[in-house]
């Protein structure tokens, strides 16, 4: 029913735009990672593997990547531990207040990421809210220094930020579970725990995978929370990239690291998508 012209008019502009402003830039990043910088700090457009050699040869890159993955893994774990029971509660126990609770999870997402990270900084600092509170009630005499400028602060803040992201797909998957399945399980004599582990949990696995992927991937690439709250021991891989694109001025090396991150992230997305398909009911 739609003419050729109609289809061309709606297809061509978005396709062109996305090609120019998304596809080409991602490809350009790929090219950059094989270029180099001259001693006068100009980008040289000739192909070399030297960036990748550095990536493998210089240990600090690998170590920082591992540390970032370890931070991201903890954020993922804590977001799931906070998000799953919350989603389960909302979906099965909240009754009429379900909608209200759902909105309450969403609202913090409307508060700027930066502002929430900053709020944690004012809480965790050595004369921040938490330390002065502890001293006020005489639990401690001196400020606890490990609270701020540590991986702990980064993990705490990122968990705060990504818990709603982990919650949302889990909640969606729980909401999609046909309720008669649960009634059937109960009618057939399964206990609450058996119903949960044999019926509810397996059906929610796609949501868990999606939530885990969100939390891991988004925190893996974060560079603002580490800059603001991480201190020297909380540096993550993106911070190195930022410095290579700034003061250290080696865009090709920065592009190589970013590309490594991109490949890691995209393969994680594929794995998680494959697993989701496998576990999807229906």
């Amino acid at each position: 029913m739609f003419s050729r012209t109609y289809r061309a008019v709606v297809t061509v502009p978005p396709l062109l735009w996305v090609t120019v402003f998304l596809l080409v830039p991602y490809l350009l990043m790929f090219c950059y990672s094989f270029w180099s910088v001259s001693t006068s700090q100009n980008v040289v457009h000739s192909w070399t593997l030297s960036n990748y050699r550095q990536l493998v040869g210089v240990h600090v890159y690998g170590q920082t990547l591992l540390r970032s993955m370890w931070i991201a893994a903890r954020v993922m774990l804590f977001s799931l531990l906070l998000g799953y029971p919350l989603a389960y509660f909302l979906s099965f126990y909240a009754g009429r207040r379900k909608d209200l609770f759902y909105q309450l999870v969403i609202i913090p997402l409307w508060v700027s990421y930066l502002v929430r990270a900053y709020a944690w900084k004012t809480i965790l600092g050595s004369d921040g809210v938490l330390n002065t509170l502890l001293q006020y009630v005489h639990l401690t005499k001196h400020p606890l220094e490990f609270l701020l400028y540590s991986p702990f602060a980064v993990v705490l803040t990122l968990t705060h930020i990504y818990t709603p992201f982990a919650f949302l797909p889990i909640y969606a998957s729980l909401e999609h579970i046909p309720r008669p399945l649960i009634e059937a399980s109960q009618d057939l004599g399964a206990s609450a725990a058996q119903t949960f582990w044999r019926v509810v949990f397996p059906l929610s696995i796609p949501g868990v995978l999606a939530g885990a992927t969100f939390a891991f991937v988004l925190s893996l690439g974060d560079f603002l929370a580490p800059l603001l709250l991480g201190g020297p021991s909380g540096i993550m891989i993106s911070n190195i990239v930022v410095s290579l694109f700034g003061a250290a001025y080696n865009w090709p090396l920065g592009a190589a690291i970013s590309l490594g991150m991109l490949v890691l992230v995209v393969s994680l997305l594929f794995v998680s998508e494959g697993l989701e398909k496998k576990w999807r009911f229906s």
């Binding site: 402003f21 830039p25 350009l28 991937v217 893996l220 690439g221 930022v242 970013s258 991150m261 991109l262």
Partner: peptide
């Protein structure tokens, strides 16, 4: 889905 830094840098 990607960390913002990748999109920002490629642009």
């Amino acid at each position: 889905i990607l960390p913002g830094i990748i999109t920002g840098l490629s642009l």
